[in-house]
Computed example of a mutant assay.
Amino acid sequence: MNLLITTFLLLLGCSAVISDAPEPSYRLSKDVTPTSYDIWLRPYLLASDGERRYTYNGEVNITLQYSKGREITLHKNIVNITSTWLYKYNNNTPVAIQTFGTRELIYDNITQKLTVPLKENLDQYEKYMLRFGFLGQIRDGMQGFFRVNYTNENKREKWIGVTQAQRIDARSIFPCFDEPEFKATFRLELSRPTQYRTVFNAELLESIPDASSFNRYLDIFAATPPMSTYLFAFMVTEYVTYGNDDLKVITRVEHQNYTRFAYEVAQRALKAFDAYTQLPYKQLGLPQMQIATSPKFAHNGMENWGLVIYKEEVLVHMPDYNDGWSDKEYTLNIIVHETAHMWFGNS
């Protein structure tokens, strides 16, 4: 009996100690908030890239609104920070005011919070820019920036890069304030091999030779409207695109003729929501809608604003395989659902 009482008291004491342990704080402070992200990425997908294959170089400039505090805390996961600078805007020109060694940064593996300690308080309500250089991994799962392979019509293996930032995987693509409440605009510049093409939430402005790398082009995209990080999306593929200025389909060349039903459904869904809400899609903030296929994807579809990514079987109907009415009903339901998010959730 004494042994049982002693054991009970020990367990009770242990539970008291455990209950006193503070819970990790996962939410970010609102002392510093982002207003825009300017992102540059150079992914390596080719066998000729050698040891760099399935990695990427990146830089992000985050424009911030500062209110108080001696630190800036945001999120990161997997990416390795190589450089950090803080700038203050002077007549809309950023001027460097502080640099940080990687050992000065504080990282919490549990909460995935990255803290940049400031040497002194900043000027309240002024605009600043936090810049990171980093290295990332093109992952083999289906989160963040990941890679997918398929066999094309010539029986050759192809690799593409796809993103899935929802729920908390934008932070594994670039350092960011990865909570839905922190909405900001996003601009993207993507360096790609010449045989690849890229797409992003917003429209492509221009493609120019990448001056810093042979046999690559730099695709420069317009800015998105203010949106949450989980909607950030891009793809690096050898796909083809068809459609018009309102709606485009992005898919494998061998699947182009088998996505016509999906294209018609997406067209009708956009028109129906335009009429129902009396708020045309183009007035929400982006001029075009793009729907894209991925051979592997974590969900039936993901409502990234302006670039909805679907599993191939949702958009592609192969004759005598998955072109029956039940398959088309499935396609119709998924496309209408994801399209609705442009009005309900995204904007």
Rank of each mutant, 00 (worst) to 15 (best):
T93A: 09
A269F: 01
H75A: 06
E181G: 03
A211Q: 12
V148Y: 05
R268Q: 12
V249K: 07
K68A: 01
D178C: 01
Q112K: 06
I334G: 05
Y281F: 14
I160T: 08
R192P: 07
Y87D: 03
R260H: 15
G324S: 07
Y310G: 14
A184L: 06
F344E: 00
E203I: 12
Y56K: 07
S67W: 01
D169C: 05
F221Y: 15
P287V: 04
T163H: 06
N57K: 15
S191P: 06
N77V: 10
I220R: 15
L284R: 15
N90T: 00
L218I: 10
L114H: 04
Q267C: 15
Q112I: 06
R268L: 06
I334Q: 09
I173V: 11
F100I: 09
G133I: 00
Y150C: 09
L86I: 03
V253G: 03
Y276H: 02
P175R: 08
Y87T: 07
Q267G: 14
V336F: 05
L135E: 10
L9K: 14
P280A: 15
Y56H: 03
H341N: 02
Y263W: 13
N346H: 03
A96G: 13
A184F: 07
T277S: 09
K68D: 00
L135Y: 10
I220L: 13
I5R: 13
R268F: 09
M318H: 15
R260N: 15
T7F: 10
L270Y: 03
G345N: 00
C14D: 12
N244G: 13
R216F: 11
R53S: 06
I5G: 02
P193S: 13
I5T: 07
A233I: 02
R52I: 08
V148G: 08
F174R: 01
L11C: 10
Y281G: 03
D38F: 05
F146R: 04
M289D: 05
H341G: 01
T84F: 02
L3M: 09
S294W: 04
T7P: 04
L190N: 11
Q267A: 13
H75P: 00
L247N: 05
S36A: 13
R187P: 07
Q65N: 15
A223F: 09
I72T: 02
K183S: 10
R103N: 07
H341V: 01
L315H: 00
P117N: 06
K296C: 08
W85E: 04
P287T: 13
D320S: 08
Y26T: 10
S67Y: 00
P193T: 06
F297M: 11
G101H: 04
Q195W: 04
